[in-house]
């Protein structure tokens, strides 16, 4: 296979993954939220509503693509693209297994968070271009939030980089192989030093994916639908899909950074060699469990107010993330050599 063809195949695979994933996740969301809310979710199209999402996709595809007269046409058209493409790019560095990934990036961690940081720019564009006051408010909220959470999100993963010594996502997973005392898997989540870091990461990623405690940019009870108010048909679908896709990516990043990626606890290396599909299956399962946990929060919690979120980001998360970097550094340099020798 020529290198160009290989790249194209990989990109198509990523696109296929993202779209299928989106369809599966929409169905899953409706079912999970439904059962959380003592109702059934979709039940009528197909067995237990399995084909409902397919139906909805067809509906969105065939719907009239409406462009209000007053909008900034160029930006209005461009915004869904700017929202969608980074979401797609975020899949590139995800390590589904040692071998199975679109590309191997030495700066995979940075790359993923960097492309996700482009999404709010698209949201801001959408809010501005829509010529709708609710959209404008939503766009502005997205912009304000981005600065408040993107910094702690990136700072919160730095301790991982310090411990693993790399930003390459596969290597981060490798660094979590083995067990403590031959018993507890050596995933970063089992390291008490990283628990505060994980909490910061969790909160920041909830904000990143616009989930309920922090869904201010489209908070429907306040600003109707925020930046998405004027969008319909496929443009809306692209934004919607991007949001779902980001949820998955963030969950996958959490799995990679804290929950041992594709690693099964206590499984010897020979298993992965014997069954090549094992690693991706483990990875996807973990990622979906993470997604469902995020949705559990989404289905239960009320929304915080924008000023509360700002003060949380600036006054709590950023100092806490900085403190954790310092503590991790001290522990790594002074205590770890002693400790790790003792633990084996």
């Amino acid at each position: 296979m020529s290198p160009t063809l290989a790249v194209i195949v990989r990109l198509v695979a990523v696109l296929g993954l993202m779209l299928t994933n989106g369809v599966v996740m929409i169905y899953l969301l409706r079912k999970v939220l439904g059962h959380l809310h003592i109702r059934l979710g979709p039940m009528h199209v197909g067995w237990h509503g399995l084909l409902q999402t397919v139906n909805d996709v067809l509906k969105l595809l065939t719907k009239e693509d409406l462009t209000p007269r007053a909008v900034d046409k160029v930006l209005f058209f461009l915004a869904p693209v700017v929202v969608f493409v980074p979401s797609l790019m975020a899949y590139l560095a995800l390590p589904f297994s040692e071998a199975l990934r679109a590309t191997r990036l030495e700066t995979g961690m940075l790359f993923t968070f960097a492309v996700l940081a482009i999404v709010p720019i698209g949201i801001l564009m959408a809010g501005w271009a829509s010529a709708n006051k609710w959209s404008l408010l939503g766009g502005m909220r997205a912009a304000a939030m981005q600065i408040a959470y993107e910094v702690p999100l990136l700072l919160s993963v730095l301790p991982i980089v310090m411990i693993a010594g790399t930003m390459e996502l596969g290597a981060v997973v490798d660094a979590q192989a083995g067990t403590w005392f031959g018993l507890v898997p050596r995933w970063f989540i089992t390291d008490p030093l990283l628990w505060p870091t994980f909490l910061i990461f969790l909160i920041s990623s909830l904000i990143e994916v616009n989930q309920t405690p922090f869904d201010m940019s489209e908070g429907e009870s306040e600003i109707v639908a925020g930046f998405a108010s004027e969008y319909s048909a496929m443009k809306f679908a692209l934004m919607f899909l991007s949001e779902f896709s980001n949820t998955f990516v963030v969950s996958a990043m959490g799995v990679t950074l804290f929950f041992g990626g594709w690693l099964l606890p206590w499984a010897p290396d020979s298993w992965y060699e014997a069954v090549p599909a094992l690693a991706p299956i483990v990875f996807l399962t973990k990622a979906y469990v993470g997604v469902v946990l995020l949705w559990w929060i989404r289905g239960t919690f009320p929304r915080v107010r924008i000023d509360q979120m700002m003060s949380l980001g600036w006054k709590r998360l950023i100092p806490a993330a900085l403190a954790m970097i310092l503590i991790t550094g001290v522990v790594q340099k002074l205590l770890a050599p002693v400790l790790y020798r003792a633990v084996g």
């Binding site: 939220l33 809310h37 003592i38 109702r39 309920t212 989404r298 239960t300 009320p302 929304r303």
Partner: peptide, 16 residues
């Protein structure tokens, strides 16, 4: 009132 705050769960439990 819960819906106004952005929470969804309590609404359907109340409706039950």
């Amino acid at each position: 009132f819960g819906l106004d705050t952005g929470g969804m769960g309590q609404f359907l439990y109340a409706m039950r």
